[in-house]
Each structure stands twice: as structure tokens, then as C-alpha cells.
Amino acid sequence: MLDLELSTSFLFCILSLLFLFIINFSKSIFTTFFPSTSTSSKISSKIPRSYPLIGSFLAFYSNRQRVIQWTSDAVTSTPTSTFVLNRPLGRCQVITANPSNVQHILKTHFHIYQKGIIIRTHVSDLLGDDVDGENWKFQRQVASREFNTKSLRKFVETIVDTKLSDRLIPILSSAAANKTVLDLQDILQRFAFDNICKIAFGHDPAYLLPSLLQEKFAVAFNNANK
């Protein structure tokens, strides 16, 4: 008897979800063939449609090769520069380009926006265990004070200027003179990596050299970022 009751409840649950899915699917078909010309409908047309269970997976999958442009178009089409992207199985993600929202999350109310176990697990190998909560806030405060000192700013200017004159400009000049094709993204990444290592660790990995050899630490750092 209990099994029968459970089976019946499960059946009603499935039928309810199926009904909601059909309703939403029918609405999407209707709006496709009978589009509205109002301003609000034009705005909402850029917001990805959401369906029961799968969320906005269909829109995400169709734009998987241009995710940044797709989300940028959606977020800039809203009056608040913010929208909710519904993920499969009830998960959701808030995407915003509103400066006041960013300040609310990253500064004034930072303490209530914890990163969560998923992000902490992924970044712990690179940043350690203190990547959330009060420990993370304390480290940010210490770092912000250091980066506001005149001596550090002068130090950064000196290092960047040295890397520009001794490495980046000669490589670009040589490539121009010899009509050599360069991967500019790779060149700028090497330039940034040399500067970061020298500023943060006091070590020059010499990643930006004319030979453009691979450096183990640079490769490991890129893999960690990915």
C-alpha cells in the first residue's frame, strides 16, 4: 500500500513538471510565431528563456562558442543591467554589470557573499585554504594597504618600464624588422607574467625572451588559472 502511495505521488510530481514544461514550451512557440513589437518584449527577447528542470540550458548550449558576448548582450538589454541565468535542476546565477551591485557584493556587504564549497575547492590548490570569509577579507585589507604605498607604486613603475624597454619593445621591433608573425596574446601574457613574478615574489622568470621558451612555473600557473 505504501509503495502504491509513493508511486502515485511520484507520478503526480512528474505530470506536474511535464505540464509546466509544456506550458512554457507553448509560450515560447507562440512568441516565436507571433512576436510582440513592444519595448519590453524586445528587451526580454535577449534574456535567455528558462524551462522547468533544464533552465536556460538550450540558450546556453546554442551560444556556447560566444558565452561572453551572449551574456553581455543580455545584461546590457535590461534596465538594471542585471539578470538571473537559470541553470539546470534549479540552480541559478546572477549576472550584473551594475556598478552599485558590484560594490554591494564586493565591498559594502562582502561578508554575506561567501564563495561556497565549489569555488573554494577549485582555488584552494592555487590560493590555499584562506580564500573565503574573515581570513580572505583580512588578506585583501593587508594587500590593499600595501598597494597604496608610494614606494610600491614607484617599484612597480620601475619594473614595468624595465621590462618594456629591455624585453617587449626589442622583441616587437625585431619582429617588425624581420616581418615575423607573433602571437600577440602569448607575448603580452609573458610580459605580464614577468612583471607579476618580479613584483610579487622578487623573482624574474625571464619568460619574455626572444627564444620564447616555455617556463615550467608559467605553464603550471596557466593550468591553475584554467
Rank of each mutant, 00 (worst) to 15 (best):
L4R: 15
L4I: 15
E5H: 14
L6N: 12
S7T: 14
T8W: 12
T8M: 11
I14S: 07
I14R: 04
L15K: 10
L17E: 06
F19Y: 10
L20I: 09
F21I: 05
I23S: 09
N24E: 06
N24V: 02
K27Y: 02
K27S: 04
S28L: 11
T31D: 09
F33C: 13
F34D: 04
P35I: 00
P35T: 01
P35N: 01
S36N: 07
K42D: 08
S44V: 10
S44H: 13
S45E: 11
K46F: 10
I47Y: 05
I47S: 06
Y51W: 07
Y51H: 08
G55W: 00
G55S: 00
S56Q: 07
Y61M: 12
Y61L: 14
R64H: 01
Q65M: 11
Q65V: 11
Q65R: 15
I68A: 12
W70C: 02
T71F: 11
T71M: 11
S72A: 06
A74W: 01
T76E: 06
S77T: 04
P79C: 00
T80G: 07
T80Y: 07
S81M: 09
F83P: 02
L85V: 09
N86T: 12
L89K: 11
G90V: 00
V94K: 14
P99W: 05
V102P: 00
Q103T: 15
H104Y: 15
I105Q: 05
I105H: 08
L106E: 00
L106P: 03
T108F: 04
F110Q: 14
F110Y: 14
H111N: 09
H111M: 08
K115C: 03
K115R: 03
K115H: 03
I117S: 12
I119K: 08
R120W: 02
S124M: 10
D125Y: 06
L126Y: 12
L127I: 04
G128V: 04
D129W: 12
G133E: 03
Q139Y: 13
Q139L: 12
Q139T: 12
R140L: 01
A143Y: 10
S144L: 12
R145W: 06
T149I: 02
L152I: 09
R153D: 00
I159M: 02
K163A: 00
L164S: 05
S165P: 08
D166F: 08
R167A: 05
L172S: 09
A175M: 02
N178R: 12
V181P: 06
V181L: 14
L182S: 04
I187N: 00
N195I: 01
A200G: 04
F201V: 02
F201C: 03
F201H: 06
H203G: 05
Y207C: 13
S211L: 01
S211Y: 04
L213Q: 15
Q214E: 14
E215W: 08
A220P: 00
A224S: 15
N225F: 11
